[in-house]
Design a protein around this nucleic acid. Structure first.
Length: 349
DNA sequence: TCTGGGGTCCTAGGACCC
DNA sequence: TCTGGGGTCCTAGGACCC
């Protein structure tokens, strides 16, 4: 889907039509810390994009406004609404394909190979786009290719409202000129490591053998070697089960207050337990906490239980025990202010 | 107005077992 | 007589994705 969250808000509020829209942390709540979740295309013209600190987005929007450009609307995330729309869009897709992988709230892979030809697949893709437009008044961008890797990259080439077709024989040539970062799984760190070696595009990276990439990146390097050549045999995943359930919270202001930290951790643990139960899980066997300090260094501590357990009190008790060393002034005399704590349960049944 | 929240997967070292 | 090989589980950190 194209700038999914922002497009839904624009659709549902006629006063926002055509205006720059930023969905993210609520900037009208004082001291709230957060990032942009989604910016629509009008807001992107101002340099605003996903993951940008909300304060920076606010400054860019103000600078644009002072130049006489349209005022940007800032809206909080309404995940329940977006999930509901997601279910409707997924249902439309399922009406046209038997095998569907819901990759995220706004992304799906579907297998059109039973149709037998690219021509038929293109027609179906257009029908899905038309149906989403008619029923949801939203646009989607579709990529059609011989595998998930190519389809995904193709879907990103002509946004918004795009339809990009890459035939099997064209796949390798299609990828070659693209930045190495285009390959899913190549993030900022890997991109920088490649850049340091003079590698910028997919074609550049092909000078490394499979063994060299393995030495550089581990198991992932071997997979990357194949991906660089447009090869990907991974199947669509139609069923999926969570492996962990967690919640974390960034405070409005960093704190060292043991009472406050304990209270928040206990509340998070209760929330985790509620979602664990709601998710249909009976037991967990490990509890983990996360602590992020003011300087953004992040540590985690895990406790594996001798036996499976399903009680809220266990999550709260073990989470607090794991947190203790970070609170105790005697054990930890120069403790740094803490900006975030989190709780997670793992090894679920 | 610096940097969310919910996840997955991989790696590497250490303890322990036969 | 200074020390193998195969394996599992646990822990912590890091990279990445939407």
């Amino acid at each position: 889907m194209d700038s999914f969250f922002a497009s839904i808000e624009e659709r549902d509020n006629p006063r926002l039509a055509g205006k720059p829209i930023v969905v993210g942390a609520d900037p009208f709540l004082d001291h709230v810390r957060g990032v942009v979740s989604t910016a629509n295309y009008a807001a992107r013209k101002y340099g605003i994009h996903s993951a940008l600190p909300i304060g920076t987005a606010w400054r860019l929007a103000e600078a644009a406004r002072l130049k006489g450009l349209p005022t940007t609307a800032f809206l909080p995330v309404d995940m329940e609404k977006y999930s509901a729309v997601s279910r409707e869009v997924m249902a439309i897709v399922r009406g046209h394909a038997a095998v569907v992988e819901e990759a995220s709230v706004d992304e799906a892979y579907f297998d059109l190979s039973p149709l037998g030809s690219y021509e038929a697949a293109i027609e179906t893709a257009q029908m899905i786009k038309r149906e989403i437009a008619a029923r949801e008044r939203l646009t989607a961008s579709v990529g059609l290719g011989p595998n998930k890797l190519i389809a995904k990259i193709a879907s990103d080439r002509e946004k918004p409202n795009g339809l990009t077709v890459v035939h099997s024989e064209e796949a390798e040539a299609f990828l070659s000129p693209l930045p190495i970062r285009t390959i899913p799984g190549v993030g900022p760190k890997t991109e920088e490591r490649f850049r340091a070696q003079g590698v910028h595009t997919v074609a550049d990276a092909k000078r490394f053998s499979s063994d060299e990439l393995h030495a550089m990146l581990g198991k992932w390097g071997t997979e990357l070697f194949e991906k660089l050549r447009g090869r990907d045999e991974t199947p669509l995943i139609t069923e999926w089960e969570a492996k962990s359930v967690g919640e974390q919270e960034t405070f409005m202001e960093d704190t060292v207050d043991p009472g406050m930290l304990s209270d928040r951790l206990v509340a998070l643990a209760a929330g985790v337990h509620a979602r664990f139960v709601q998710g249909g899980f009976k037991t967990f066997r490990a509890i983990a906490i996360t602590v992020r300090f003011a300087d953004f260094t992040t540590v985690s501590r895990t406790k594996t239980l001798p036996a499976p357990d399903g009680r809220r009190e266990t999550i709260q008790f073990e989470a607090l025990r794991l947190l203790m060393p970070f609170l105790d002034l005697r054990e930890n005399p120069k403790r740094k202010p803490i900006r975030l704590v989190g709780v997670r349960v793992e090894k679920l049944v």
